[in-house]
Each structure stands twice: as structure tokens, then as C-alpha cells.
Design a binder for these strands. Structure first.
Lengths: 231, 231
DNA sequence: ACACTGTTGTCAACAGTGTTGTCATTACTG
DNA sequence: CAGTAATGACAACACTGTTGACAACAGTGT
């Protein structure tokens, strides 16, 4: 073992050499499994084949790790947006991709619904939205406000969907059947609209709501652009 | 008890002191203090002057308690909506009241951003929104979908604002200054819009975003109502 | 070649969380 | 008044994120 470079460097602490990248990828693997409470430091250690606390050599907190992971998912979103679209379709593509990625890594998206990463890929998303509202005809404060409207709304919607996906199946079932249970039992006199629309309320799909919310954003931008064009 | 009325009835435990109502009110008191991690079972016990686990005699879990507390806050929202408004102003009043209550009990609102209580006051809110979209001219599936759009969006926005309020002041400061820090350092070539709008982005207020998001919902309803009226 | 320095993984431990089971006392009911 | 159900106190459990001490490594300058 003296001079021999052949000696297999007997590392007692065998480590799967940990890097920030490896930790982020392990986090994504765990997040992709879809369980609500699986993304814990200890399970992350298992996934990495290392001691859980080793993660703290590469990230200050779990929160800092979460932000890094979230920024990676933002990269996935951006990569799946095709170029060469008009501003409306670009926003629709962003919404579609955001939702898809959010449902792929629900824990991440649900935890980020009120957060901001302030990292590389977030800048790209901001730039994308600003480009869209600019192309729509907005500028200055109008562009800034409408960017926030779009960005925050998208984040919120996608986080809601992700959180819903994280619920136990039983909770979700109770929620879906509530329209045909609790809401059917309300007093018809005091709640005429619920009584009248009970059936339709039960049949609303996520896709319909998604469509309505996304189109509402686009319409708002169009309207504002038209208003400033007229002045 | 007649003869022994003199004996100071040494009740080590003073009979039934805890009621669901008292627990809910203690929860609201804690929530109103605005701290993010103060709403815990043990502190609830302190606030009640009782053993923390006694709460479980009145609520199955902390989640069921949360739902009850949330429904109470919904009641506060409804009570502050004046009658006799048109559908648009009624929705605006609902949004205003929801935001006010959310900022009053941030922990509750932030925890409920993706939840539904399925309790008494939620029915009243649903009825209110359905009444508004009906008055706007929608019916059937249109009314149902647009109710969900409004309800979910409002819940999400208000939850975002509440969550933001729960952050440590330092985190919030970092967030607010990010537009004048990180975003100012981006490459002007790769991020022309961010570079151009940096100043405006830093100056966007919560009120502006709130206004844009609420009006977007109202506009979407109007537009849809006009479309179906034309057909 | 050697000591030095800083990094990284391991381990034990801590404070905190929600929750459950046990037990005695209180309140209610027939 | 007796019996039963409800209720609160207490101890304990499994879990969470996180920290400090220690040992094994990597790289560097002499």
C-alpha cells in the first residue's frame, strides 16, 4: 500500500460522492413519486445512500435545497415551450408546461405556490412573460403589473392543483363527492342557486377551470392593451 | 352539596371548561397574532389554560380544527359584505373582505389556499358567487365553471398574500429588494425586457396586482355573459 | 515526503411537531 | 343513587429539521 497506486483507495466512508447536482436529482426523484410527506431529509439520505445530515454540507437549509430544486423544475418548464409562438400561445404554452411539471413534482410545486426562487431559470420565465405582455402592447408600469398578475396567478393555480394531487385519495374522493353530498342537502329556500346548479357544479372539470383561468389572464392583457392603444 | 358547600370543592380539574367554540376562539386569537409557527397544539393548550391534548376530545385532528376555524373566518368575511350591491361590486366586496380577513388570520388563510371546508359558511360564499355570476347573465355549466374560477382564484390570491405576510421580515425584505438587486444584474443582452422594466418592476404594489387580478375575473365573467347573450 | 488546512460524511443528540393510550375525575342519564 | 359516557391530565411515541463533535479524505506549500 505504500508506493502502489494500485491500492484501491480504501475509503471507509464510501461515499457516493455528494454534489449539489446529485442531491437535487435525488430530490426530484423523490418528488416525482408523488407522495406528500416523502420529501424529508432522512428519506433524501436513503435515496442518496448517505447520511441524511450530509446534505447540510451542500445546502444551508432544506429551504435552500427546495429553491434549487424548484429552479430545476422551472428549467423543465422552459425547455418544453416551443419557440415561434405569438404572445397568447406563448402564455398558453407556459401555462400548459407549468401545470404539467407541477403535477409531475407535486410537493415542490405546492411548496412554491407563494415563493420565489430568484435564481437563473426564474429570470427566464420573467423575461418570457414580459416579452409576451410587451408584444401584446403593454409597456412600463402596465407591463410590470400584468407580468405579476400572470406570474402570481399561474404559480397559485399550479400550486393548488399540485396540493390537491397530494391529498390522500380518500380526502380527494370526499372533496369530489361533496357536490353530490353536502351541497345537495342544503336548504333550497336559502340556497336557490346551489340547489339549481347542483348538477352542473358536480360536473365541472379541472380542465374547464384551467381554461377559464388562463383565458381570463389573456383577456385582461388584451383589454388593457386595447385601452392604452386608444388613448 | 348543601352541607359541604363550604368545602372549597377542590377540583383539580374544573369540570367541562373546553368547548369547541372556546377552542376555535383561542385558535383565532393565536392566528391573529400573525406568527407563522405559533399555531401549534401545545400553544393552543397554553392559550386555553388546559392540557394540549384535551383539544383532541373536541376535534379529531388539528386539520378538522383548522377547517372549523377557517369556516369561522369565512363568517367574518360574509358579515362584512354590505347588501344591495350589483354583481360586480358584490364580487369586489367579497374580494376585499376575503383579503382583509386573510391578512388578519394569516396562518389560517395560508393553510386553506388549496382547501375546502364544506361547512356552513362556505355554502353561503358559494351561494353569493353563484348569485353574482347568475346576475351577470351566466347559467348552467357556464355559471358553475365561472364560480370555480372566482372562488379558487380568490382563495389562491388571498392565501398567497397571507403566506407572504408570514415570512420573516428578513425574507420579505430580500424579496422586495430583489428587483433592485438580483434582477438588476442580469445580462442586458439576454434579458432585454427585465433590463428595460427593472424600475417599474420594483415599484409594483400589492394593490395594483390585487386590482388587476380581481378585475380580470370580473371581465372574464362579463365577456362570457356577452358571448352567450349574443348566441 | 510531510505537516497543515479546509472540506465532507457519519454519528449522536436536541428541540419541536402531531398524535395515541391510559387513567381518574367529572357530568349526564335512567 | 348507580352506572355510563364524556372529558382532562399525563406520559410516551414516531416523526420532523437541524447542530456540534469527530474522523476520514483532498489539496497545497515547503
Amino acid at each position: 500500500m505504500s508506493k502502489s497506486s494500485v491500492t484501491p483507495t480504501r475509503t471507509k466512508r464510501v461515499g457516493t460522492q455528494l454534489t449539489p447536482e446529485a442531491i437535487i436529482e435525488a430530490s426530484l426523484r423523490i418528488a416525482a413519486r408523488g407522495s406528500a410527506d416523502a420529501f424529508t431529509v432522512r428519506r433524501l439520505g436513503e435515496e442518496l445512500g448517505a447520511d441524511p445530515t450530509a446534505v447540510y454540507r451542500h445546502f444551508r437549509d432544506k429551504d435552500e435545497l427546495l429553491l434549487s430544486v424548484a429552479d430545476r423544475t422551472l428549467g423543465e418548464v422552459l425547455d418544453s415551450i416551443p419557440p415561434g409562438l405569438g404572445w397568447q400561445d406563448r402564455l398558453r404554452a407556459l401555462a400548459d408546461a407549468s401545470l404539467a411539471v407541477a403535477l409531475k413534482y407535486p410537493v415542490v410545486s405546492s411548496a412554491m405556490a407563494s415563493r420565489t426562487t430568484r435564481r437563473a431559470n426564474e429570470f427566464r420565465v420573467v423575461e418570457l412573460i414580459l416579452g409576451a405582455v410587451t408584444e401584446a402592447g403593454l409597456d412600463g408600469a402596465d407591463a410590470a403589473v400584468h407580468y405579476r398578475m400572470v406570474g402570481d396567478s399561474l404559480l397559485a393555480y399550479v400550486g393548488q392543483r399540485a396540493a390537491y394531487l397530494l391529498f390522500d385519495p380518500e380526502v380527494r374522493a370526499a372533496d369530489e363527492s361533496s357536490w353530490t353530498r353536502e351541497y345537495r342537502l342544503v336548504d333550497a329556500g336559502g340556497f336557490p342557486h346551489i340547489t339549481r346548479l347542483g348538477q352542473q357544479l358536480a360536473e365541472v372539470t379541472h380542465d374547464q377551470i384551467y381554461h377559464a383561468r388562463v383565458e381570463a389572464l389573456i383577456t385582461a392583457i388584451s383589454q388593457r392593451a386595447e385601452a392604452v392603444r386608444g388613448s
